[in-house]
Design a protein around this nucleic acid. Structure first.
Lengths: 150, 150
DNA sequence: CTTGTTGCAAATATTTTGCACCCAT
DNA sequence: ATGGGTGCAAAATATTTGCAACAAG
């Protein structure tokens, strides 16, 4: 179980909830999960975990850099594995499907915009909200019905 | 009072809370206000309004296109007057100051990215989080202490 | 008048915290 | 064994809703 080692390396005891949550993110076909999603999934797998623990672990993992916390338009945070490079998100408003993308020109221009205003850029979040208007949304149901129009 | 007319035009009765909330956004030196901000401000002006009413009115105004609802990283929504063209946000993590910007190249590339993936773009939100690292943050205190690093 | 609107209180939703017990090291 | 970690329940925060009183047209 390589994850046990990963966890210890970052100074966290390899407890059952932590290992299982990390595994969940690694194995889930759905990349973006809310605390509630994680909680329900673990319960469904027969692990009797507390929602509070899920929140605590997710926050610890975020601080440790294992996960990233994202907000989109839904009012609840979702988390994704921080295993790839920085990227932005394209979110389907119909089915909640999320695709990731990187555009170097957009990245460059953001740095430039901040610099022009003498701001030191720390982070940014860009989400494009759209419809993946295929006759039948190819990715029906994903995480939580994203609503709103922004 | 031109606002009374504006409100009626969009099918809303010109009630005191509505008129005052709209005025507040028009006159406030702070462009981005949360429901709580609006509520406190009105109370301070001596208007005995309910927080629930503030939430209802803000939502109505958003649906009517008078306001825009934004999320940033704080967990609570802020609203801004929808009087200008679309723009993105540069948010100081230290003092919460918000500057707006538009970059046509970024806009174009977003449309292109969505199109390449056969998505119909509906909206997007781009926030750059930064420090306006001036010896004394020039815009101390604005809306609500934005935290996090996202 | 009549219907939409408000204020209040209670309900929801999301996330955090206090605390006694438990388990990884 | 021991200190960090957990589950539960309660608290905190943000927002929504039911309802009787009220006010704009």
């Amino acid at each position: 179980m390589p994850n046990s080692q990963n966890l210890k390396t970052i100074g966290l005891k390899a407890t059952t909830p932590r290992v299982r949550i990390l595994e969940l993110f690694e194995k889930s076909p759905v990349r973006h999960l809310s605390a509630e999603d994680v909680y329900r999934q673990l319960m469904q797998e027969g692990l009797d975990v507390g929602l509070a623990t899920v929140y605590r672990v997710l926050t610890q993992f975020e601080q440790a850099g294992l996960l990233q916390r994202l907000h989109f338009e839904s009012g609840k945070a979702v988390f994704e594995l921080n295993d790839t490079h920085h990227h932005d998100h394209l979110v389907c408003l119909q089915c909640g499907h999320v695709e990731e993308f990187v555009d170097e020109e957009i990245e460059r221009r953001q740095v430039k915009i901040a610099a022009e205003r003498q701001f030191t850029i720390r982070a940014h979040s860009l989400a494009i909200y759209a419809d993946c208007r295929n006759p039948a949304c190819p990715h029906r149901r994903e995480v939580g019905g994203n609503t709103g129009s922004g």
